[in-house]
Structure formats: structure tokens, C-alpha cells
């Protein structure tokens, strides 16, 4: 599903990723861990095409990114749900509209959107907050809105960048359960985190990154 081959990425001559090679299979749930600044976010950005690798090749769901036309990028992105570290919620829209936007972009009809969004909000336990605005939600609730927006379009890949960053342990555990549920439906899930508790005893693959290098792999 995701294949990196000798990928290197520079930011102003400083290497953020160095010769990274790994593969993630369809339906897998993989953790990426390492200290802050290790290159986890850069790696995710390359997957959702926000950044381009300077060297090496990347294949996502059989799309070779180096051969991908710019006009095809939106269509590939629709197959990738992203839980952004900074949430990227639209402050001037309520929870319903924040989730619905992912479907409006896909050209879905209003009647279908209504049903679909409410279903997803029920799944993340936010149905009662559909009319609330992001500022009125707690950090955990905001995180769940972002997850709802990321999965509402039924992507084949779900990426999460530090999804439990500022959450208390109970809320973080709830979020992790949610990811497991999503993964159980067949979605490939990649979670970048420096929180050990998130992947401990999960039995899932953990890729270790440090200083832009892939330094190891273990089972959590």
C-alpha cells in the first residue's frame, strides 16, 4: 500500500529524511515513533503529497508519486484521510460542516451528506455536538472531529500525526480504540507519535526514526 525506497528530503540543505526505505501493507496498522524533529511529520507529508522527496521513490496504492500529474493529486488525496497535528479545523464552521466539507469536495449531494456525516459523528460520539463550533470543544472532541473528517470519505489510508499530543491518558486511550476500529474495517492506518503508551502491547509494527534515519523496527 505504501512503499518508500531510498527517500531523502532536504530542508535548506539540512536532511530531514535520509535514505528511508520501508513498506506498509494494505490493512496494516503501523506506528512511527521517534523524538520531536526526527522526521515523522515530514514522512507523513510526503505520503499525503504536501512535500516532495528530493531523492528516492514513493509508491502509494500503486501510484508512483514521481510520475503523478499535478491535476491527479486531489484524487489521490481523497484516498488518504489525514489527522493533522494542528487539526486544521475551520473555525467559522460548525462540527457538521467541518466533517461535511470532505464530502462536498467529492461532489456528494446534500441529502447523502446529512446522513453520512451524522453516522460518522455517532461513531466518534459527537452527534450531540454537530452544531457546535470548534472553539467550544475540548481538545479530545476537536481531535475526534478531525478523525471524523479524515474517515468520512472512506479513505484506504488513514494518517495521524501525533493524534494524542495534548490529550489526557483516558481520552488518548479512547482515540487509540477508535483507530483500531477504523483499522478493523480494512483501512491502512499509520500513526506518528512519540507517546510510547500509544503502541505498547498493541502487537503492531513500530518503525523507529531518529535524525531522519530509519533506526529500527519492533512489535509494540
Amino acid at each position: 500500500m505504501i512503499h518508500f525506497s531510498n527517500v531523502t528530503k532536504f530542508y535548506e540543505k539540512q536532511a530531514a529524511l535520509k535514505n528511508i526505505t520501508f513498506s506498509i501493507e494494505k490493512g496494516e496498522m503501523v506506528f512511527m515513533t521517534g523524538p520531536s524533529g526526527a522526521g515523522k511529520s515530514t514522512l507523513l507529508k510526503i505520503i499525503y503529497l504536501s512535500e516532495k522527496p528530493d531523492e528516492g521513490s514513493v509508491t502509494i496504492a500503486e501510484w508512483d508519486l514521481s510520475k503523478l500529474k499535478e491535476s491527479s493529486i486531489p484524487f489521490l488525496r481523497r484516498n488518504i484521510g489525514v489527522v493533522f497535528q494542528d487539526f486544521r479545523l475551520l473555525d467559522n464552521r460548525n462540527v457538521f460542516d467541518n466533517v461535511a466539507i470532505a464530502l462536498r469536495i467529492r461532489g456528494m449531494l446534500d441529502s447523502e451528506i446529512q446522513e453520512w456525516v451524522m453516522e460518522i459523528l455517532k461513531m466518534v460520539n459527537l452527534r450531540h455536538k454537530a452544531d457546535s463550533f470548534p472553539q467550544a470543544l475540548s481538545g479530545g472532541e476537536q481531535q475526534r472531529v478531525v478523525i471524523a473528517r479524515a474517515i468520512v470519505g472512506e479513505p484506504t489510508i488513514l494518517l495521524a500525526d501525533e493524534p494524542t499530543g495534548n490529550l489526557d491518558p483516558d481520552t488518548a486511550a479512547g482515540i487509540t480504540r477508535l483507530f483500531k476500529e477504523i483499522n478493523a474495517r480494512g483501512t491502512t492506518v499509520v500513526i506518528a507519535t512519540h507517546n510510547r503508551e500509544l503502541y505498547r502491547n498493541t502487537g503492531r509494527r513500530v518503525l523507529r526514526i531518529d535524525g531522519g534515519n530509519m533506526v529500527g523496527e519492533e512489535i509494540g
Binding site: S71, L76, R77, A102, I105, G153
Partner: peptide, 8 residues
């Protein structure tokens, strides 16, 4: 944000 969500 629209772009990252797949807007054309």
C-alpha cells in the same frame, strides 16, 4: 485545508 482534503 481544502487542498489537503482533496479539493480540485
Amino acid at each position: 485545508t481544502f487542498k489537503l482534503l482533496g479539493a480540485t
